[in-house]
Design a protein around this nucleic acid. Structure first.
Lengths: 243, 243
DNA sequence: TAGATTGTTAATCGATTAACAATC
DNA sequence: TAGATTGTTAATCGATTAACAATC
């Protein structure tokens, strides 16, 4: 019972296409990553039960999420790993590359530059910018330090941000500066025409409507963990012990 | 109309205490941070409208969230900044320090070690562990590199993880290793007794029930941005232009 | 008292879940 | 056909919102 190309892809039916729920969009990248790792180990077909387990979600949720993209599974069989993976990439907009500029090249910025998942998912770092004289002019290697001819990139001065944006036309800006500098950088990114910002600085950015900011906040994550850790220490009156 | 200590803190009334919604817990650290910055600039009282604007949420949501902690505002006046800040910290479990071990001291691990928000929120880094001979034995400065006598810490070999956990009793483990190593590290952290894990590696960790894993995933955030950026490019038929 | 602002309610909205008919 | 597994439905749950009575 193999899945032929002809059989696959019943294509979006109902209202599909527009209006994929936010919660679903947030999970698609995880499904995509797991599917790629399945493909890498030679798996060609996978059931929702199996895929869901690998992704850490319930089978029902997985199927509901996937049904937003279209009817790409085969009843009684499962999903074609490569095909489904491609559909998710298409839906997420990963068919064409996205250009990214990173502002702030401290330890965090360097961690981002060396992160392999960047290029492998079609994100191209087109610029690095920093305010600190010590790092301006420094050359960094994009991706892992394999030094096998991969790209390298020079750190430009913060003052050249607007020019860089104009010349390289990034669609996404990453802010990896100290908190104090973040709002100013955001203003300049927006002023230069960017509409998508990923913010690692621990501040609430204020941006005009139409600009999307996503925030990654270490301190917030730690505090949420602390909250639950605390609760775990308080409440464990196992049902059995209650009067 | 100042807020006297006597007037403040109607204390939890209804079902409060247990069962603060997850969505609320996730926002409390943001409220806390903004309140601290307000306090730092001398503000003593703030209304829900004003605080909500600074936090990037609606006033209704803010008041609903705060009402989970108790009735700590004053009608017609607002909230006492210092008092509310303290209540949030208490609720989040930040009154006592939490000990953290960081596994993986690449660029990302170093970024975490140098992050000031760690110590300032009561998180104490009690151990750094890595598998790479080049970094084992290295000395890192915790917090900003002010070199004014703050703590420094040596990187221990990965093999010493269990012993470190036993001796220093961290409650929280941070995984900042490459993807390949993450599951193995998680298993060992759980085996050593940790129940709270913050995972920066791009893998879905599998852990026993009772262990909480939070995941910070750069690639996921970027892909969500790409999705919306793509949609923005497709859909902008301003209502006015539709037939 | 009059003005301001909270705390709470009830309505709405979106996300999750379980179950099962459709169908390979 | 019989077994397996999807896609979809309907029920439940949790989160958001707007409005306003309570009250400083």
């Amino acid at each position: 019972m193999s899945l032929s190309r002809r059989t696959l892809g019943k294509a979006p039916t109902h209202d599909v296409g527009r209006g994929i729920p936010d919660a679903t969009v947030a999970r698609l990248p995880v499904y995509g990553r797991v599917l790629r790792s399945l493909a890498a180990q030679g798996t060609t077909t996978v059931s929702s039960d199996c895929l869901a387990a690998s992704c850490g979600v319930s089978p029902a949720k997985l199927r509901k999420d996937l049904s937003c993209l279209g009817s790409y599974g085969t009843r009684g069989v499962g999903y074609d790993v490569a095909f489904l993976s491609a559909q998710i990439d298409r839906e997420l907009g990963l068919s064409k590359p996205w250009r990214v500029v990173i502002v702030g090249v401290g330890n965090l910025g360097r961690a981002l530059v060396s992160y392999r998942g960047f290029a492998s998912r079609g994100f191209e770092i087109v610029g690095l910018v920093d305010a600190h004289p010590d790092v301006i002019g420094t050359k960094l290697t994009i991706g892992e330090e394999l030094a096998n001819g991969e790209g390298t990139i020079y750190v430009l001065p913060l003052t050249g941000l607007e020019r860089l944006v104009e010349e390289s036309q990034p669609q996404i800006g990453v802010i990896a500066t100290p908190a104090e500098a973040a709002q100013g950088v955001a203003d300049r990114l927006v002023g230069a025409g960017l509409r998508s910002i990923l913010n690692f600085a621990p501040v609430v950015l204020s941006v005009p409507a139409g600009v999307e900011v996503r925030k990654v906040d270490l301190a917030v994550e730690l505090q949420i963990l602390a909250f639950h850790e605390q609760r775990r220490g308080e409440e464990p009156l196992p049902e059995a012990m209650r009067a």
